[in-house]
């Protein structure tokens, strides 16, 4: 009788523990992917640092900034948006290329190269930058932004998202 009582109890305990253990395993198997799933996109760093081809180097005239336009794709979630990037490319010797963003560092208007004056002009607050993008007059706080460049097979590339 006593013996039986004991057995009964241990069977009951065993089942309770087994149920708890299986439940815990299932809980972990579900919880780990669930947490990864929820926080996953938040942990993704922008790794879209990539070289974008602008075009042939032969288009760039010595001492005269040339405007290149290129479309870059931006992916956020499942939505891909296209963005136009405009870049002035300058070279003094035909070997070293400097790529300048055409976005004014003051408040973001587009600058335009005026070849008569040898300056970039920003129409918004009358700023002027010299050929290499340094501020000549006006409110912009710093020179025009530069992209890293490289040349491969006479094709010009710039590094975006770096």
């Amino acid at each position: 009788m006593e013996e039986k009582e004991k057995n009964q109890l241990s069977r009951r305990n065993f089942l309770a523990i087994a149920t708890g253990a299986i439940g815990a395993v299932i809980g972990v198997v579900m919880a780990v992917p669930a947490v990864a799933y929820v926080i996953g996109p938040a942990l993704q760093r922008r790794t879209d640092e990539n070289w974008v081809r602008l075009g042939s180097t032969s288009k760039v005239e010595l001492g005269n900034p040339t405007l290149f336009k290129t479309i870059v794709e931006n992916q956020t979630g499942w939505i891909v948006t296209e963005e136009e990037v405009s870049v002035y490319v300058v070279t003094e010797d035909g070997r070293e290329y400097i790529a300048l963003s055409n976005i004014c560092t003051h408040l973001g208007c587009r600058v335009r190269w005026i070849s008569d004056q040898g300056q970039y002009f920003c129409p918004c607050h009358n700023a002027a930058f010299d050929e290499l993008g340094l501020v000549v007059t006006g409110p912009p706080p710093r020179p025009l932004d530069r992209y890293e460049t490289k040349v491969e097979d006479d094709q010009l590339y710039i590094l975006l998202g770096g």
Binding site: P33, A34, A36, Y37, G40, P41, G77, W78
Partner: peptide, 12 residues
């Protein structure tokens, strides 16, 4: 996007 990009998405 869920099945290919989100971690654990295929599982969920």
């Amino acid at each position: 996007f869920i099945t290919t990009q989100v971690p654990g998405g295929w599982f969920i």
